[in-house]
Design a protein around this nucleic acid. Structure first.
Length: 573
RNA sequence: GCGCCCGUAGCUCAGCUGGAUAGAGCAUCGGAUUCCGAUUCCGAAGGCCAUGCGUUCGAAUCGCACCGGGCGUACCA
């Protein structure tokens, strides 16, 4: 597809002093107000070099560029050169771009097949999947899809929290108060109950904590009884998690969690020792990071058992060896910022120059009105409950709108679950938020169902016009006049569709799926406005075909965008 | 205490690699359907962009200070 910004930059370059076309390309703006042009070039920066007032420069550039065929109109307003691209040419470039690429529109090869690891979700085993876990899961999934789309060779890793002192606690609790049948009947809720009880009892009797630590140490040493219990808890938990992943439509290439690196830690300790990085402090082995303004990194506990930074270091080294990554992305809560800084610094001190390729992608905290979510106090909202309620609500709304039962059956899940995922991907990752049932079950305005509805509506128009793929393809070839989609609302939509590939790229650079989310909301709004302003299925063949091409393009971009968010785009709802 | 993050309309948030008049959604009020799907669309109202100083032709955006909130800060992850 033709890149219009580059074309313009080439045209401007001869008149813009010593700036290169690339520099100009970066300076070209898209004005907020369409009456100021499709593209604009501010001339302030040229004033020094050309020793002339910016408005005069703008006038000169406008004059020089005016004759070129790409523009319908060129104006100079104060220091700006405002360029109005010939609408029909633009519409043709945009629509052909979308429809010829189809589901691949927005895909690129800037990744060049380089390998990128995305670690996300990574729940703690034996604890329920609650609403707080959805963030890493859904954001990470979308980042994976975006990187895949950008041409990277992408690996998805679920770094399960399946190790550590918490399992010592669980085993201790199970031995004291546990019952095999209960666990088998309802594993996670039962295990959670033990975990909660452990903390209640430990307040009265702190020696339980020591017992838990000792039990984890036995597990780490491979003691048979502890290992068997641990394996059992792990299997039961994974079975429940996979049910939630199936609902969300999320998959992984690897479930190698913390325990996987258990046998790879002695090598890490050796390497640290060899580099002279290990120091004994209060009976604990640490890496001193004081000169970097950080608290020390705790490598082993006083009883010699491992801590999570040690496992994370081992995991990073293993991944470099196994996958030789170009980029190693961790989608983990912002609470762990310091942990990541320490960890990456230790990698650097160990002499691994690829520490620079490790990226922590943090996100904000989900809390409840009652306060921070806490598994051990039982103050949690289960994700599965949220998803089920959302699907139920969707069913009710669809029934109210007189959708037929077959459609409800086919799409209520996609819409209900999509609504929850969409909301999660609507705001900047870093924002904290307070969970609210009212909010999560609100489908009005800029929500997933709104965007999906728009997609279904576009699909419906195409069905009514009997405009299947074949029809659209031949219409594209035969349609000489796109004037019908160059009215105000049609052209706004055209411009948004054209920008989609840039949007995907930016979302990848910034690790921000919400950039995609917001863009497809804009596309949906623009399409709905177009739909209201213009009648699509009209008598005149040329006009109708142009409008159908735009409708098919909008539908495609919405579908591709939703796809990058991991959300389905229903044909009917 | 120290470190990191957040502060924009009544609420939830975009905009932050500086650029033309600061934008959405929700809520409120008022409109639009003999016509392709009203989970729609249009309009009104709503702002010392937390505060102060600085840098700049130009600051919501950059720097410093300060206030408010969140998170983290040695044997949990």
């Amino acid at each position: 597809m033709k890149n219009i910004r580059e074309e313009i930059a080439k045209i401007l370059a001869p008149a813009a002093g010593s700036l290169t076309a690339e520099q100009i390309g970066q300076m070209i703006e898209i004005p907020a107000d369409a009456s100021m042009g499709d593209y604009a070039f501010p001339c302030f920066k040229l004033a020094k070099e050309l020793r002339k007032a910016p408005p005069l420069i703008a006038a000169d550039i406008a004059e020089a560029v005016r004759g070129c065929g790409l523009f319908e109109k060129v104006e100079n307003v104060n220091a700006y050169v405002n360029m109005f691209v010939d609408k029909q040419s633009f519409a043709r470039i945009a629509i052909e771009g979308v429809l010829s690429a189809g589901a691949d529109y927005g895909r690129s090869d800037i990744g060049g097949g380089r390998r990128v690891i995305v670690e996300y979700s990574s729940p703690n085993i034996a604890k329920p999947f609650h609403i707080g876990h959805i963030r890493s899961t859904v954001i990470g999934n979308s980042i994976y899809k975006i990187y895949d789309f950008l041409g990277y060779d992408t690996i998805r890793i679920n770094h399960l929290g399946d190790y550590g002192t918490q399992f010592g606690k669980m085993i201790v609790a199970y031995r004291r108060w546990g019952c095999r049948e209960d666990v088998e009947r309802e594993p996670i809720k039962t295990l959670l109950g033990y975990y909660v009880k452990f903390h209640q009892e430990a307040e009265k009797d702190p020696s339980l904590e020591d017992e838990a630590r000792a039990t984890f140490t036995r597990l780490e040493h491979g003691e048979k009884e502890e290992t068997e219990l641990w394996k059992w808890f792990r299997e039961e938990s994974l079975r429940e998690f996979s049910r939630v992943y199936a609902m969300l439509g999320i998959e992984f290439d690897s479930y190698n969690g913390e325990s996987f690196y258990s046998d790879k830690m002695p090598a890490v300790l050796d390497a640290l020792r060899e580099k002279g990085l290990l120091k004994l402090s209060n009976g604990v082995q640490i890496v001193d990071l004081e000169e970097y303004g950080m608290a020390p990194a705790l490598i082993t506990k006083s009883d010699g058992s491992s801590l999570y930074i040690t496992r994370d270091i081992a995991a990073a080294i293993y991944r470099k060896k196994t996958y030789d990554f170009y980029k190693n992305i961790y989608v983990v809560a912002s609470q762990q910022n310091l942990h990541f800084q320490q960890w990456f610094k230790v990698l650097e001190l160990m002499g691994f120059d690829w520490y620079k390729d490790c990226v922590h992608v943090p996100f904000g905290l989900v809390s409840m009105e009652e306060g921070t979510m806490s598994t051990r106090s039982g103050r949690v909202v289960f994700l599965e409950d949220v998803l089920n309620k959302s699907v139920e609500k969707t069913r009710e709304i669809m029934a109210e709108k007189h959708a037929d039962p077959a459609t409800i059956e086919a799409t209520a899940k996609d819409v209900g679950i999509g609504a929850v995922m969409f909301q999660e991907l609507s705001n900047s990752r870093i924002k904290d938020y307070v969970f609210s049932w009212d909010k999560v079950l609100n489908f009005d305005g800029a929500t997933g169902p709104y965007v999906q509805y728009t997609h279904a509506r576009a699909a419906s128009v195409l069905r009514n016009a009997q405009a299947d793929e074949k029809y659209i393809k031949s219409a594209l070839e035969g349609c000489a006049d796109l004037g019908a989609v160059c009215g105000p609302s049609g052209y706004e939509l055209v411009k948004l569709l054209y920008r989609f590939p840039d949007v995907v790229e930016e979302a990848g650079e910034k690790y921000e799926p919400c950039i995609v989310t917001r863009h497809i909301i804009e596309v949906a709004q623009a399409f709905n406005k177009f739909y209201h302003d213009e009648h699509i299925i009209v008598e005149d063949e040329t006009e109708k075909n142009a409008k159908l091409l735009l409708t098919a393009s909008a539908k495609q971009v919405i579908a591709n965008g939703l796809g990058l968010l991991g959300i389905k785009a229903p044909e009917k709802m």
